[in-house]
């Protein structure tokens, strides 16, 4: 460490955690929006990186930034007018990359449940780390995951 800067090259961070961040974003947004959100995530992280103090928790830090990028992507998409006559370029229920439509269901969950379910099911994170990413206690993280999954089961039962 020199002057309190992280002593790990950002390149190393991308190699170590890039695949996890990408998997999170694919689950969260679908493969099409994930690529741009990945760029947004890594650029934001690179901007802030010299000021990162707790380099040991780099993965949670990157996922926190990724969640923000995913949130912004979702908002921007909802504001975008949808040309009705065009073929939809958004992954829909039953699209090839999500044959069962299960992830589309996750993406329609309330914010906290959705993020918690993605972190748990797609990344297999412990509740403690889910809490770190979302700024909640591990107990609240567990609750969000369980509520999200039970909403999905209820919906499946309704069909």
């Amino acid at each position: 460490m020199l002057g309190g800067m992280p002593d790990v090259a950002f390149e190393t961070l991308v190699d170590r955690h890039g695949p996890v961040v990408m998997r999170f974003l694919i689950a969260r947004l679908g493969p099409i929006d994930a690529e741009d959100a990945f760029q947004e995530t890594m650029l934001s992280a690179l901007r802030a990186y010299p000021d990162l103090r707790e380099a040991g928790a780099a993965r949670s830090w990157l996922l926190r930034i990724a969640e923000r990028a995913a949130h912004d992507t979702g908002r921007a998409r909802r504001r975008r007018p949808i040309p009705v006559a065009d073929v939809p370029d958004r992954p829909e229920v039953g699209a090839p990359e999500d044959p069962s439509g299960a992830w589309s269901g996750v993406r329609r969950l309330p914010d906290k449940q959705r993020t918690a379910v993605v972190l748990r099911v797609a990344l297999d994170l412990a509740y403690r780390e889910i809490g770190e990413v979302m700024g909640t206690s591990p107990e609240a993280a567990r609750r969000n995951v369980h509520e999200g999954l039970s909403t999905l089961r209820d919906r499946a039962g309704e069909i």
């Binding site: 991308v14 990408m22 998997r23 694919i26 760029q39 650029l43 069962s100 299960a102 089961r153």
Partner: peptide, 29 residues
């Protein structure tokens, strides 16, 4: 529970090689 989580895990495409993403990132940076 296993059916739902199994469907979710199976429905997630694998993360490919990130070489292209890294190159794009470096150019933007």
């Amino acid at each position: 529970g296993t059916t739902l989580e199994g469907a979710l895990t199976a429905g997630l495409p694998p993360v490919g090689d990130l070489a292209h993403e890294k190159e794009r990132l470096a150019a933007a940076a």
